[in-house]
Design a protein around this nucleic acid. Structure first.
Length: 286
DNA sequence: AGGTCGGCCTGGCAGC
DNA sequence: TGCTGCCAGGCCGACC
């Protein structure tokens, strides 16, 4: 699933192609992509404008356009962006035509992906800051204190808290499992039970997992693809995620699968000791 | 108000 | 074989 490293991978690949280019036409085939805005409205608002910058905040891709308009593209579960895909690519929902005759397609079998048009930078920042915590790769804002405050007095499982985009932006199911393993914290441990000494390792674990994900060009478990359709490689470097029954890379114990915060979750119960009382919502899977 | 759960959506696969 | 039904999960809204 596209999380921060996957979105950043796409951003780095796409930026050199689109920055400075003008959108000459746009076609939104699926109105759900930009709902409740009308496809025609969004198409008209973007057409004729230059893409000044391609940015990212959390899992959102940000197209900053001349005239100030901001398009936030979210891949959600299965969205991918393809450069120069032939017209009518599988599950194509949106197509951008650029002034150098190239085209960008947004494809998404499950139609969860979205495009949100906002009028200016201030509106964009208000929208994002209302929903997202600090950027994890910005050491100035993603401090151990951010996690300390988020965990204080919380009964919710620590995995659920770091999946919450208001805690820290961009962490999803894969990188939550990988970061918690790196820090030796069981995913189902209630936030308030995370030891003070584990906070900094977790902060570092989140950063490390995300950076390795970016280095690997993201993880292509099923749908995620690069701009040219190639796969990322980080799925080959998972330590615990999707590795049920395989040995823990540190101690050799069998990695177990469970459900935590409603998500498929993988952990080594030796390296990540479970809490005495597992939250009711956490359960083991065979 | 914190925490959990269902809905959105569809491909893929287990099981009958 | 072919069908049914369940699972995957980012994010939001509903509910307890």
């Amino acid at each position: 699933m596209p999380e921060l490293p996957e979105v950043e991978t796409v951003r780095r690949q796409l930026a050199p192609h689109v920055e400075g280019r003008t959108i000459t036409a746009m076609r939104i085939d699926d109105g759900r992509w930009c709902a409740p805005q009308e496809p025609g409205e969004v198409e008209d608002a973007l057409t004729g404008h230059r893409i000044d910058a391609l940015g990212r905040r959390g899992k959102h891709l940000i197209f900053s356009l001349s005239g100030g308009a901001q398009l936030l593209v979210h891949l959600r579960m299965t969205g991918i962006l393809l450069w120069e895909a032939e017209e009518g690519a599988p599950y194509e929902r949106v197509r951008f035509f650029l002034d150098d005759e190239h085209a960008l397609a947004f494809c998404d079998p499950r139609r969860f992906g979205t495009g949100l048009l906002l009028p200016d930078e201030a509106t964009r920042d208000a929208y994002l800051d209302e929903r997202l915590g600090p950027e994890p790769l910005d050491p100035a804002t993603f401090t151990p204190d951010v996690l300390r405050r988020a965990f204080k007095g919380r009964e919710a499982p620590v995995k659920g808290i770091i999946l919450d985009q208001r805690t820290v932006a961009g962490v999803g199911n894969i990188y939550a499992d990988e970061a918690l393993f790196r820090a030796g914290i069981h995913p189902a441990r209630p936030g308030r039970m995370v030891q003070a000494a584990q906070i900094e390792p977790l902060r570092d674990g989140i950063i490390e997992a995300l950076e390795l994900g970016i280095d690997g060009g993201g993880a292509s478990i099923d749908d995620f693809r690069h701009l040219d359709g190639a796969r990322g490689s980080f799925q080959d470097d998972f330590l615990v995620h999707r590795r049920a029954g395989l040995p823990c890379p540190d101690c050799g114990a069998e990695i177990r699968k469970m459900v935590v915060a409603g998500r498929g979750t993988y952990a080594c119960e030796v390296c990540q000791p479970p809490p005495r009382k597992l939250p009711r919502s956490a359960r083991y899977l065979p």
